[in-house]
Each structure stands twice: as structure tokens, then as C-alpha cells.
């Protein structure tokens, strides 16, 4: 243990202090790097969102003119009203067959009318 022969209280205290400060220095450096990385990525995200919003706003602006909108709506209305209704010509009534059951049979449930002879 000759290696530490010259190490006393002042050196130990100093090493503890330097060690603790060094941990902070390294981790603070990492904070800034992470913040920079976060800033770049959040900026990219924001830019993408703004671009998305911008595209939506352009479409909205194009039809913001009330007269144009009214003209489009009228044209659509006229076009649709000129169209005749056309049936699909498909029969949707299907014959449903059920298995016979005397439980719901009316013939057994009702009093039969007496036969006149």
C-alpha cells in the first residue's frame, strides 16, 4: 500500500470533492447534449405540424369566399336533383322456413269453430 503512503486527509477530501464535481460536470454536459437533441427533434416535429396545418389552411382559404361556396353548393344541389332515383331491382324478401313446433301452433291454441253439419 506504499502507493497511498502520501495520501492524507487533505488529499482524500480534495479527491472526494473533485470526484463529486466531476460527476456533475459529466452529467451536466450530457444534459446540454440531450437538450440540444430534444430541441432539434421537437423543432422538426413542430415544423411538420405547421406544414400540416398550413396545407389544411390553404384548402380552407380557397373556399372561404362565400359566393364561391354558395355557387358550388347550388351546382351540387342541381346536379343531384336532376338525377332520377334508381332502384336496385334486387328482391330483399326472403322466404323464411321454420321447423314446425306445436308450442306456437295456433291451431292447437285456439278453440276451433264447431263445424256446421
Amino acid at each position: 500500500m506504499d502507493k497511498f503512503a502520501n495520501v492524507g486527509w487533505p488529499e482524500m477530501l480534495l479527491m472526494a470533492l473533485i470526484g463529486f464535481v466531476l460527476v456533475f460536470v459529466v452529467l451536466v454536459l450530457l444534459i446540454y447534449i440531450m437538450k440540444a437533441m430534444g430541441w432539434v427533434f421537437t423543432r422538426q416535429k413542430k415544423a411538420a405540424k405547421v406544414a400540416e396545418k398550413g396545407a389544411a389552411a390553404d384548402v380552407h382559404d380557397a373556399i372561404s369566399d362565400q359566393e364561391i361556396a354558395a355557387a358550388i353548393i347550388t351546382a351540387l344541389k342541381l346536379y343531384k336533383s336532376n338525377l332520377h332515383d334508381r332502384e336496385s331491382e334486387m328482391l330483399t324478401i326472403n322466404r323464411i322456413t321454420r321447423a314446425y313446433s306445436p308450442w306456437n301452433s295456433k291451431i292447437h291454441g285456439l278453440t276451433q269453430v264447431p263445424e256446421r253439419k
Partner: peptide, 10 residues
Amino acid sequence: ANPKSFLLGA
């Protein structure tokens, strides 16, 4: 998400 956490770790 919260790099300040490094300070607490230090």
C-alpha cells in the same frame, strides 16, 4: 424527455 433528471442522478 427531461434531461434535468441527470442532475438528480448526479
